[in-house]
Design a protein around this nucleic acid. Structure first.
Length: 699
DNA sequence: GAGCACTGC
């Protein structure tokens, strides 16, 4: 992923001369002072002192993420060696914000200010302000249930309601209760019974006892909790935390005019196309951002724009299209950041990635068709799927905001205002739209046994909880009375993987093929290892054939990984690490492999290998005996098994659904009698065409 | 012979 700064400019390293550095520090000081949050520094610190829980609603550009932790540090919240933790839903945000705050504080990154994300820890014993992903803090809680090193935890972007944020909020509520109790009498053995079921009543008590004893000398101060949200949902959080105090901080955004169509559009792609040209021909300079639902839509709109451009007279053809979506290789993603040539207008065709993850400079016009591809979950089948659905009002607001970051902008909504009114206020939280196996496994490991009774911010359906409990039971992670099994359940909860993958590792360790399974699971954990651009499809196919195994896609992935490994091994002694990386990227390009994905897979591999070794699993290879390995696959992926039917389609055993092998699979032609699959995709729907656009401006 | 929103540990 390219570096996608949030809010602030980049960071320079500290090798500049002192004059330059002085000017720069003055500049930073000015910028900090001009932020809306600057005027309420004292008040905010007081609020945090007075209230153990505080909700902060801060609009975009308020400076809350960078400034509040610094205010609290100055106000003395890091005394006694305690740390202020700030969680972010995304890795890039944690990194870029930490860099900015380190610079503002005039310290080296990793000293007083640092960040910690998976595979990349830039903290030290000196770190007092620590930015991290919310998922990482959840993992940390498994090792330190009281989160005892933190005096303050700030949950940022809570309105996004990711699974991690939601689980974290429930957990923090418990930790806070447990800590205020432990503050009075934390060393008493009675505490085990009085801590409201958490976290000391875990049957896994020995581990917590250890932490407990260690703390006898020092009293644990209450945990301060700050929930930061950009939306108007403050009351949801406030009610959840027993009527917690909420404060509002103004933002700094430029005005964005909203235009609605007069009539509903039957074909939003065509409507988007017309709007792009309408803007191009009638509006002033400024780039256009179009929100589409996926790769296919992006590619087809790109083609249509090119075609239509050819029909225009030469002087007004100055329009370039740039696609961006997550599975696009990084080098191509970076193109959205390059300014268009002089006199040209840039049209960015993006998925939701541009809604929050990527901030693209220069956007003045946003085209919002009002749809998004979203995950949904059917507990009766135990199956997740992706569907195109209308966005929520909150999403529409967020998309509009993308046009007002550098100056006033315009947002073209490809639907009438009456349709906007019908949209849901906010997006359904992810926890209600996904498989809960992983969530349940983690909560169990944290000592929460009654999942249905757990105090979720919003409870997932009972059916959904029960389905996941059932799956975990079938995987052997839970005992008959729904407790974490020993050792399988505990081992699975420690692995940062989908429970099925964790199970596969444990099974493989017993049948001497853990080495193969570690590679498989790492490769399955990342997205789209193979990258086949449409224009080079044939070449890509030939390249893939070198790796293909007649025994299936899993073995094919092992071949890719091992070939890349051998490639690196051969050159290891000769050159530097950077050069090595560069060579690997070149190798990937030649073999039509997404180098970012392979890099990720290598990271995952080394991390889970470390975990497996720590657990005492036996890391050995089955050599050429792939039957053994395939048996292990079958023994762990049985929830994803399908049998061939007479007409050549397959029936998924767990859900009864009729499915097909994807044409990109090496088994597409072979059609074996029994297969295990990793994922099920929906097939696409067709569209109708229409035209005719009239606009109406909001009052 | 068809096509995979976005995150995260």
């Amino acid at each position: 992923m390219p570096s996608m700064a949030q809010g602030h400019g980049g960071v320079r390293n500290s090798t500049e001369n002192s004059n330059d550095s002085y000017a720069r520090r003055q500049n930073i000081l000015q910028q900090r002072k001009s932020l809306p949050i600057a005027s309420v520094e004292k008040r905010l610190a007081d609020e945090v002192r007075k209230h153990d829980i505080l909700i902060i609603v801060g609009e975009t550009g308020s400076g809350k993420t960078t400034q509040l932790p610094q205010f609290l540090f100055q106000a003395g919240f890091c005394r006694d060696g305690k740390v202020i933790g700030i969680t972010q839903p995304r890795r890039v945000a944690a990194v870029t914000v930490a860099k900015r705050v380190a610079e503002e504080s005039g310290v080296q990154l990793g000293q007083r200010v640092g960040y910690s994300i998976r595979f990349d820890d830039r903290t030290s014993a000196a770190t007092k302000i620590k930015y991290m992903t919310d998922g990482l803090l959840l993992r940390e809680a498994l090792l330190d249930p009281y989160l005892s090193r933190y005096s303050v935890i700030i949950v940022d972007e809570a309105h996004e309601r990711t699974v991690h944020t939601d689980v974290l909020l429930g957990l923090l509520k418990k930790v806070q209760k447990a800590r205020s109790k432990s503050g009075h009498d934390h060393s008493s053995a009675d505490n085990k019974k009085t801590s409201n079921g958490f976290p000391l009543d875990n049957e896994n008590g020995a581990r917590f006892n250890g932490i407990f004893k260690q703390r006898q000398g020092g009293k644990l101060p209450p945990l301060k909790l700050i929930i930061m949200s950009a939306s108007l949902d403050a009351h949801v959080f406030s009610e959840y935390f027993g009527g917690a105090r909420a404060v509002h901080i103004q933002g700094r955004q430029f005005p964005v005019d909203i235009l609605y169509t007069l009539y509903p559009e039957t074909d939003y792609l065509d409507a988007a196309l017309i709007t792009i040209f309408q803007i191009h021909l009638e509006e002033g300079p400024g780039d256009i951002l179009v929100f589409l639902t996926g790769q296919e839509e992006i590619e087809s709109v790109e083609r249509l724009v090119q075609e239509r451009l050819q029909q225009l007279p030469e002087p007004i053809r100055k329009l370039i299209t740039v696609p961006i979506f997550s599975s696009l290789p990084s080098e191509q993603q970076m193109r959205v950041f390059a300014p268009a040539a002089a006199g040209f207008r840039k049209v960015i065709l993006a998925t939701n990635i541009a809604e929050t993850s990527v901030t693209i400079p220069g956007i003045k016009y946003v085209i919002d068709p009002g749809f998004v591809k979203a995950r949904s979950y059917d507990p009766s089948k135990g199956m997740e799927s992706l569907n195109v659905v209308p966005i929520s009002k909150a999403q529409a607001l967020q998309r509009r905001g993308r046009a007002g970051r550098e100056g006033p902008g315009k947002c073209f909504r490809l639907y009438p205002e009456s349709e906007f009114e019908k949209l849901e206020d906010s997006t359904k939280p992810e926890i209600k739209r996904c498989n809960l196996s992983n969530v349940i496994l983690q909560l169990k490991a944290l000592g929460v046994d009654d999942i249905i009774g757990f105090d979720f911010l919003e409870k997932p359906s009972r059916a959904s909880i029960i389905k996941s409990l059932e799956q975990l039971f079938l995987l052997g992670a839970l005992t008959d009375d729904c407790k974490l099994s020993d050792p399988v359940g505990h081992q699975m909860s420690r692995l940062p993987l989908d429970p099925i993958y964790s199970k596969a590792l444990i099974v493989a360790s017993q049948f001497n093929c853990l080495e193969e399974m570690l590679i498989t699971v790492a490769m399955l954990s990342v997205e789209s290892i193979f990258y086949a651009p449409r224009e080079k499809l044939e070449e890509a196919r030939t390249a893939m054939k070198c790796f293909a195994s007649p025994e299936g896609d899993h073995l094919t992935l092992i071949n890719v990984y091992r070939t890349s490994d051998e490639f690196l091994e051969k050159r290891k002694m000769e050159i530097t690490k950077e050069k090595n990386e560069k060579l690997l990227r070149k190798w990937c390009k030649e073999n039509f492999i997404n180098s970012r994905s392979l890099r990720q897979a290598r990271d995952v591999h080394s991390q889970i290998r470390g975990h497996a070794e720590q657990m005492g699993l036996c890391v050995s290879s089955c050599g050429d005996d792939m039957l053994q390995f395939r048996r292990c696959l079958a023994a762990s992926f049985f929830l994803n098994a399908a049998l061939r039917q007479p007409e050549g389609t397959y029936r998924a055993l767990a859900s009864g659904q009729v499915v097909q092998i994807h044409p990109s699979s090496v088994l597409f032609r072979a059609k074996p009698e029994c297969i295990i699959f990793n994922e099920l995709y929906n097939s696409l729907m067709s569209r109708v065409l229409s035209c005719n656009m009239e606009w109406e401006q909001e009052d």
